[in-house]
Structure formats: structure tokens, C-alpha cells
Design a protein around this nucleic acid. Structure first.
Length: 235
DNA sequence: ACCCAGGCGCATG
DNA sequence: CATGCGCATGGG
């Protein structure tokens, strides 16, 4: 019996196509000899509870000012950084969070992402969660998309998916949902392929969420609307 | 004029 | 341990 998790994945992938996340400007980093993984980390912090459209101009500003590097964020004046990322909202907090993260990276790993990601996965995840401003979704986005680690990312859309379709998760909390998806996917995929599935699945869920599964659902033409139990009352 | 977005930290009961 | 609240801009 193929799990519902796999079925939904296959339907989403075949109807929506590969999303190719994380959206980072690889060409920019090739030209500047900088590290695209750092752009992913910055994006993960800036997009916290914020539409990606608001993040795009902020990333563009940082690129234009040549500040999309560990040293760049370390050295930039805080008030100026706030100004550059203003469009993402919560810009006081987020500017501090960027500063805090690079301080952590510099203090503990000499600013090297290679050193950071060479750590044991579960120790590293716990350590990232200690950094102020990095919660479970941000930590897992960094691990999966910047570090190529086998970690499933959960967000509000993923929770909504579990509620509406519905999926038999224990409780509707982060770790339970993550565990549920990982357990159901590890049986079918291994190694690099599993990592690619984690990357693609999360991106597909976000697309699904943005397009159909909003607070006010728009079920027409949703590729998995037949599985949706939205109209049924959820206990 | 609302509502919402790819969360998180901290304060309460 | 579970909720509630503040943080803030930009698009629908």
C-alpha cells in the first residue's frame, strides 16, 4: 500500500512540475566568487512570516551593495542594513538576526560554511536552534537547501495540508509533522534522491499553498482537490 | 479598510 | 506544556 504522502507528492510533481528550489542567483555568485549558500541562509531569515515578493528587493539591495557575504553582513552598519532589508518587514529584528547568525558563524566556524556543514547533522540542528532568530523552519531550510542535508521542512502550508487532506499526524506540531513526512519518504527514497525529494516536496507544498490552500481556499483547479476534506468539520 | 504572508522569542496560565 | 502577543512591509 503506497502511502498517501507519496501519492500526493506524485500528483503535485506531475501537475506542477519541478520547482527547482531554493531560488538563489547562482550566476551572481559565480561572477563574484561568493557562496550561494549564504544567500540561501539570508533568504531563509528574511522570509520569516513574509511573502517572498518582499524578500526579492532586499536581496537585490544586498547584492548591489556587495553585502551578500559573511564579512559584508558583519561589517555593515546596522541602521543601513535595516534600510536595505526594509521591504521584508520586521526589519529591526531581521537585521539583528542576520548579524547574530554571522557572529555565530565567525566565532564558531571562522565564517566557513564548509566547516559548519561538516558537523554531525543532529548536533548541528540542535546548535542552529540555539541561535537567536533561528527556529525549526529556518534551521531546516538552511540544512536542506544550503547544506544538502536530509531534513524535511515544515511550514504553515504543510500544517494546512495535514489538516485538510487529512494526514494522520500525531499532533499538529512541527516535530511530529516532520517525523511523519520523513518516516513516510525514507521508505521509498535513499541518499541523494531522498534529499532531492525533500527539496522538491516542500517547494511543491508552498506552491500549492500560495495558489490554492490559502486561509480562504480556492479549490477549483487544485491538482489534489479530490483528496481534500476541507468541507468536513475537523474535530 | 481590511486580510494575509515560506516565523520566532518571550510572557503568561 | 500550550497559547497569545509583538514585530512591519507590500500585495490582493
Amino acid at each position: 500500500m503506497g502511502s498517501k504522502v507519496i501519492e500526493i507528492y506524485k500528483k503535485l510533481l506531475s501537475s506542477l512540475g519541478s520547482q527547482g528550489w531554493w531560488p538563489a542567483d547562482l550566476e551572481y555568485h559565480r561572477r563574484n566568487n561568493s557562496d550561494y549558500r549564504f544567500e540561501i541562509i539570508v533568504g531563509a531569515i528574511l522570509t520569516q512570516n513574509t511573502a517572498w515578493n518582499n524578500v526579492i528587493p532586499a536581496i537585490e539591495n544586498l547584492k548591489r551593495e556587495n553585502l551578500l557575504t559573511v564579512q559584508g553582513i558583519r561589517d555593515v552598519n546596522l541602521e543601513y542594513l535595516e534600510e536595505l532589508i526594509r521591504s521584508t518587514g520586521y526589519y529591526h529584528q531581521k537585521a539583528l538576526r542576520l548579524k547574530t547568525f554571522v557572529s555565530y558563524l565567525l566565532d564558531k566556524y571562522n565564517g566557513s560554511l564548509d566547516e559548519l556543514f561538516s558537523r554531525d547533522l543532529y548536533e548541528l540542528r540542535e546548535e542552529l536552534l540555539e541561535v537567536k532568530g533561528v527556529g525549526p523552519e529556518t534551521a531546516d531550510s538552511v540544512l536542506l537547501y544550503a547544506g544538502d542535508k536530509p531534513v524535511f521542512v515544515v511550514d504553515t502550508y504543510t500544517k494546512r495540508l495535514c489538516q485538510r487532506f487529512p494526514l494522520p499526524v500525531e499532533k499538529l506540531v512541527y516535530d511530529e509533522i516532520q517525523c511523519f513526512f520523513q518516516n513516510n519518504l525514507e521508505c521509498f527514497f535513499r541518499g541523494e534522491e531522498l534529499i532531492e525529494v525533500y527539496k522538491e516536496y516542500h517547494a511543491l507544498i508552498v506552491y500549492l499553498g500560495k495558489t490554492w490552500c490559502k486561509r480562504k481556499p480556492l479549490c477549483s483547479s487544485c491538482p489534489i482537490r479530490e483528496d481534500c476534506s476541507y468541507s468536513k468539520p475537523v474535530s
